[in-house]
Amino acid sequence: MTEEVRCTIDGRMVSVPAGTTILEAARQVGRDIPTLCHHEALTASGMCRICSVEIEGARTLVPACATVVREDTVIHTRSERVDRSRKVILEMLASASDVSEAPDILAYAETYNADLSRFADGEKRTYDIVDDNPFYIRDYNKCILCGRCVQACGTDMQFTFALTTAGRGFHSHITTFFDQPLPESVCVFCGNCVGVCPTNALQPKQEWLLEQGANWDEIRAQTKKPRRH
């Protein structure tokens, strides 16, 4: 028998097995909490903070995805502080990256009344599209630095370690060893990073070529696997 812990989420008493996260507990009682960096198959990194919730008596908000329910806590999934944080994070994200192909962000923006052009004067993170292999393209203009690709490439899935976050602060970015092209890196083109990318920054090359209006012959020519010697 696992031990049960009780808490209050938005006024409702909830009892869950010890070790359950606030995110899981809230979903059990039908309270949805937005998430961006969170992915079922990956370790919760708690980086994006869009899932921040308020616990009564706590100094700061806590990330629901990475915080385990503790006995007798009173949790609010919506509050003035929670809503402001979510709104401002979304507004700042949209000012830094191209979120046009990130449906979750667009939907959350509606919910939290985020003005996605609020910080439009700010510096945008702009990059050239990286088209260095037949399998997928990397458009880091769309990257929100959720870190899922690095996790999938590393200890959460593949143990390949081709990707890293480089730089720091606003100018953090995802790259390879000394920015080398993927075919020269240890990448094995497993595709796990593409699978977990939430914003289409990583996209299968065929799909991307189709969107660019390429015909089938062009697509076949550009996505041919390199012959092994």
Partner: peptide, 21 residues
Amino acid sequence: FQHESCGKCFPCQLGTQRQAE
């Protein structure tokens, strides 16, 4: 703070930049 933010969490990564600007 713009220079020293580590970039891990979004509020600080983005906020220190916009604040400084």
